Simulated assay, not measured.
Amino acid sequence: MNKCLRLILCLSVLLPLLTGCWDRRELNELGIMLGLGVDKDGDMVRVSAQVVVPNEVSSKSGGGQGTPVTQYQASADTLFEAIQKLTETSPRRIFMAHIRILVFGEEYARKVGIYDVMEALMREPSARPDYYVMVARNTTASKVLDVLTPLDNIPAEKLFSSLDVSFKTWSPTTAITGDELLNHILTPGIQPAITGIEIVGDTKKSGSKDNISSISTPAKLNTTGLSVFRQDKLIGWLTEDESKGYNYIRDNVVSTVSHLPCRNSGEVTFKALRTKTKREAKVVNGLPIVNVSLKNVSSIGAVECDIHIGSMKTIRELERDSEEKLVELMQESVDSVRRKFHVDIFGFGQELYHADPKLFKTMEKDWDKHFENLDIRYKVNVQIKRVGTLDDSFKGEMKE
């Protein structure tokens, strides 16, 4: 009898734990959203969801008859109300666990601000924060997500992959994930900077298969400079060179290609193999100083001038000239941001906080004003390790 009683008690405790797949969702009941766009619609937020069309991307079904994705739109007072409202037109419940790209329309980013959307997505358990964030320049997020792209037939996947490759191989662009962006918004001593995306070409065919039926697509999606924010609102854009300087200071440059004018005429092209930047703040006589130290290892990609590239003297001259150019690039980026935007997007305030938390606390509320007069010192070390498979150019030996 005691054994039976113990068994019943054990079962009564264990059975409630064996709930099974209580939140199970069948794939044929879900609409997989890969791209999310947020725009301003009067006083409301308009959501654009780029959803995969399963039959068009499945190899078993043949596909190819229609577009690989479709877009659903809805407007509401809040983000998740708008997402839930998508079911008015979508036959499936929108599934958010696979978002690859989040695009803010420029008007929304300027006038409304992006914080509420970012917090809502971070609070949602089904939305992973590893998606990339972009700002649609001179257009809306819905139009960006409406462009069909070649090579990667799912536009959101193209945007993610293109930005991921670009920021690793081209210094003017950078990639920022959802959790990193929210951290920049909330952390004192740094303001956000986000890569922009624009539509180039004929937008009339951008959403149809005509856009991918020719070698040269009528409408293309191009990354374009960095957008500058004050807290969570867009206030302007950096040029290509200013974006390069920003990424060098922030240690975002993995690899890139750049050129340097020769001392006589022509140009030399460099390939950056490794780049490492350290930012360190110090307090001298009660005033903060930030040291920016950059180490760069490069190889020579092309020589379009009359120099003896096999000479160590020439290599040393190129290294010094490259060092001066990188210092100028970073300095001009900082000076331009000070002059036009008056915000610290470089994170110098964070470095001061790490060096002297008490001093930073006294400056925190007015840090952007202190940033305008901050003493920043640059030190660059460039090493040219390779000159390619040739020493000198054959240009001087060409027949007249």
Rank of each mutant, 00 (worst) to 15 (best):
V69P: 00
V13P: 01
P16S: 05
C21I: 11
L7I: 12
T70L: 06
M33E: 08
C21V: 10
E56L: 04
R46S: 13
I8H: 03
G63E: 08
D77F: 10
Q50Y: 01
M44R: 15
R25F: 06
A74H: 12
L14T: 12
A49R: 04
P68G: 04
L27T: 13
Q50A: 01
G20E: 10
A74N: 10
D41Y: 11
Q65S: 14
R6K: 13
P68L: 03
V57K: 01
Q65N: 13
L27C: 06
A74P: 03
A76P: 01
S12Q: 08
L15T: 10
I8A: 13
D77I: 11
D39C: 04
V51C: 01
R6H: 11
V47Y: 00
G42Q: 08
E26W: 06
G35E: 02
E26K: 04
V13A: 08
E26A: 07
Q65G: 10
W22V: 07
E26R: 00
V45K: 00
G20L: 09
I32Q: 03
G20Q: 10
G62C: 07
V13L: 13
L27M: 13
G31T: 09
L11D: 05
E56C: 04
V51N: 04
T67V: 13
D39N: 07
V47M: 01
L17T: 11
T67L: 11
W22C: 09
A74S: 13
K40W: 06
P16C: 05
V51P: 02
R24L: 14
G66R: 11
S48V: 08
R6C: 13
E56I: 06
L15M: 12
T67C: 07
L14E: 08
G66C: 08
K40L: 14
C10F: 13
R25E: 15
L27F: 10
K60G: 15
C21P: 07
G64N: 07
R24E: 15
V51H: 00
C10T: 11
E56H: 05
T19F: 07
N28M: 06
I8N: 03
Q50K: 05
M44Q: 15
G35H: 02
G62Y: 08
